[in-house]
């Protein structure tokens, strides 16, 4: 059993504890239980579980969290490399609406 764990020590997630107000929004939005509240501040408890979705940083009002977010998708990386852009999953931005 190898489980559903991805590569170790690659994640770009950073938490600046000095800016954290302990509101707990990151815990609420994180889909992988990366954070917990310890002594009234957030702390990272499972860094390698982070998938860099960016929900925590997006909902951190004091800006204590930063992460180089994006889609963890090889096709997107390839598409981005071919088009010379950032990784993009080109997912249907609408081919034929109406």
């Amino acid at each position: 059993m190898f489980g559903l764990r991805y590569l170790e020590d690659v994640v770009t997630l950073e938490l600046d504890a000095s800016k954290c107000t302990g509101c707990g929004n990151c815990i609420e939005v994180c889909p992988h239980a990366v954070f917990e509240i310890f002594e009234k501040k957030a702390r990272i408890v499972d860094r390698d579980a982070c998938m860099e979705c960016g929900a925590c940083a997006m909902n951190c009002a004091p800006g204590a969290l930063s992460v180089d977010s994006g889609v963890g998708c090889a096709s997107a990386v390839i598409t981005g490399a071919v088009r010379g852009t950032e990784p993009t999953c080109g997912c249907s931005e609408d081919a034929d609406c109406c």
Binding site: L4, Y6, V10, V11, M51, E52, G72, C73, A76, V77
Partner: peptide, 14 residues
């Protein structure tokens, strides 16, 4: 290429 369909892969990891 299934990384994109999975729910736990990060861009840095990919």
């Amino acid at each position: 290429n299934f990384t994109g369909a999975s729910t736990y892969t990060s861009l840095s990891g990919v």
